[in-house]
Simulated assay, not measured.
Amino acid sequence: MRVMVMVKATPESEAGQMPGSELIEAMGRFNEELVKAGIMLDGDGLKPSSKGVRVRFSGKDRTVVDGPFAETKELIAGYWIWQVQSMDEAIEWVRRCPNPMASDSEIEIRLFFEPADFGEAFTPELQKREERLRQQIESNQGTERR
C-alpha cells in the first residue's frame, strides 16, 4: 500500500526558518534508511505558505488566493510517499523519524486510493488510460525533475 506521510507546518517553518545542519544530517540519515529499505518513493520539503497560492473553485469560477494562510496547524511543510505493507509499518517508520522541526511537531499518515477502491466506476478503459499516464509520468521524471 502507498501512503503519504505529511510533516505538518509549525510557526517556525511558516516563518521560513531553515533547519540547522544537525537536523539536515539526521533527516538525511533517516531518508537513507527509507531508501535502503525500499520504502521511500518520493519526498521533499515545502516552502512556507507565503510562497504559495490556493485556487478556490465555485462552479465554473476560479479564484486565486495568495498565501500566507492563517491556520498553521492545517499546513504541510513537507512530505514523503512510501510503499509499505501496512499502516502499522508506516507508523513504526514515523516513530523512528527524527523530529523534523526545531519545536514540537506532528506527522500525518494518509492512505492513497487504490484502483479497487473505485469499484465498477473505474472501468477497464479508464484503468488503461491511468496506466498510460503513470508510464508517461515515470518517463518524464528523469528529464524534468527539479
Rank of each mutant, 00 (worst) to 15 (best):
R2A: 04
V5R: 08
V7E: 04
T10Q: 01
P11C: 04
E12A: 12
S13K: 07
G16N: 08
G16Q: 07
Q17E: 12
G20C: 01
G20A: 04
S21R: 12
S21G: 10
L23F: 01
I24F: 01
E25Q: 14
A26T: 11
A26C: 05
M27W: 01
G28R: 09
G28P: 08
F30Y: 11
N31Y: 02
N31C: 03
E32C: 08
L34A: 09
V35M: 14
A37C: 04
G38Q: 07
I39Q: 06
M40Y: 04
D42T: 10
D42L: 06
D44G: 15
D44V: 10
D44P: 12
D44R: 14
D44L: 14
L46W: 07
S49A: 11
S49I: 08
S50R: 15
S50W: 03
V53F: 05
V53G: 14
R54W: 00
V55L: 02
V55Y: 00
V55F: 00
F57I: 15
S58N: 15
K60Y: 07
K60I: 14
D61V: 05
T63K: 04
V64G: 00
V64R: 01
V65W: 01
V65N: 04
G67L: 05
F69D: 09
F69M: 12
A70W: 03
E71Y: 00
E71M: 08
E71S: 13
E74C: 03
E74T: 09
L75W: 00
L75K: 08
L75M: 05
I76E: 03
A77D: 02
Y79C: 03
I81A: 02
I81D: 01
Q83M: 06
V84H: 00
D88R: 06
D88V: 02
D88Y: 00
A90V: 05
A90F: 00
I91F: 01
V94T: 09
V94G: 04
V94Y: 00
R95I: 03
C97S: 13
P98I: 07
P100K: 08
S103K: 13
D104A: 15
E106I: 13
I107L: 11
R110A: 02
R110I: 07
L111H: 14
F113R: 14
E114F: 04
P115L: 06
D117C: 01
D117W: 00
F118W: 04
E120Q: 13
E120C: 08
E120D: 13
E120Y: 02
A121V: 10
F122R: 10
P124E: 04
P124T: 09
P124I: 06
L126G: 05
Q127G: 10
E130N: 10
E131S: 14
E131W: 05
R134L: 05
N140A: 09
Q141R: 13
Q141P: 01
T143K: 14
T143N: 12
R145F: 01
R145P: 01
R146Y: 06
R146N: 12
R146G: 14
